[in-house]
Design a protein around this nucleic acid. Structure first.
Lengths: 171, 171
DNA sequence: CGCATCTGTCTGCGCAGGCAAGTATAGTGA
DNA sequence: TCACTATACTTGCCTGCGCAGACAGATGCG
């Protein structure tokens, strides 16, 4: 069996998992309580707000928030029902949709952003020196590189767009 | 509205989220494909294996993997059905259960551990110098402190055991 | 143009897990 | 001893999302 992890390794790894779980819960709770948004929903609004043309395609958004297209369809349904986004048949490709923010979406985002930024600062950024922030950013980049690189090791097959996660017998 | 986040801040924060999402997916996929275990299920087995008396109570386990007791009941159901753990009425307190690993559970864990350790090293630890690992561990501790401290600011009520997350109108 | 294939999205289904309410057992104060 | 309340789980219900399969529209090739 592979070597046991050292305490240092465990601290880095388990802390990472715990920190994420706690922050996610807190920030999502805060956003949900104050604005009725999940973190994924919030992210979609932010992406649309930042999109150069003010619109993105369903699949782009799905990819950006790391959801499958099926799952994202339903998130988009909810956001649309809530009047925060708009889906318009794409002129150039009638299979797809151009998604954009409604006025209501933009103004809700405005409010939610204030909440969320404050939360992120208070629970994350304020605990880090500028140097640590920079170091973290660099670390994430290193770690993400192999995951993001579209054709990393020569000949590596790109499966379907998401990794099949669970064929498990147990859980 | 609160100040925009700097690029440095965004890099640290968004990278954290993305790195977690990617690693979680990959490691869970790997564990599921090879051993039929979710990360939470794996964690439960590890906890039991590390438990001094070889047993833990349902609620302890639930807390340790950050699940509600209701959710954990069902994870325990699955693990028990799969023959990996055993639930025995606790002698000292007939409301509770002592959960322990079965032989099958221990041996599956043995295998899964090899897979998981290799994955964690390859996708996380190997990208970090020892100093970075130590720095990360310290950072997580700082960040987790306020979340973990049972009576942080004097007089802060401890709500029910998990934060209500979603009463959201949207998602 | 006609046909095969590929792509972008939607839908049916299943599962994990949260919340709230329900059921035992413990503990506590009168 | 007898309420009353607190604790340890369990269960019903619901939501979010992944997967697989079904489409319509796009694209390529004869």
């Amino acid at each position: 069996m592979a070597e046991r992890l050292t305490d240092r390794e465990l601290g880095a790894w388990r802390g990472f998992l715990r920190a994420h779980a706690n922050l996610w819960r807190e920030l999502e709770g805060s956003l949900a309580a104050r604005h009725g948004l999940s973190l994924n929903a919030y992210d979609v609004l932010v992406l649309l707000d930042e999109a150069p043309a003010g619109t993105m395609r369903m699949s782009e958004l799905a990819g950006a928030v790391l959801m499958t297209s099926g799952g994202f369809t339903r998130l988009a349904d909810r956001l649309e029902r809530a009047g925060l986004i708009r889906r318009e048949r794409c002129a150039a490709d009638a299979r797809g949709f151009d998604v954009s923010l409604t006025e209501r979406g933009r103004s809700l985002l405005e409010d939610a952003r204030a909440t969320h930024r404050a939360d992120v600062r208070r629970r994350f950024l304020e605990h880090l020196s500028p140097e640590e922030q920079a170091a973290l950013a660099a670390i994430w980049e290193r770690i993400l590189e192999p995951a993001v690189d579209p054709a990393a090791s020569r000949g590596r097959r790109r499966g379907r767009d998401t990794t099949a996660i669970n064929r498990g017998e147990v859980a």
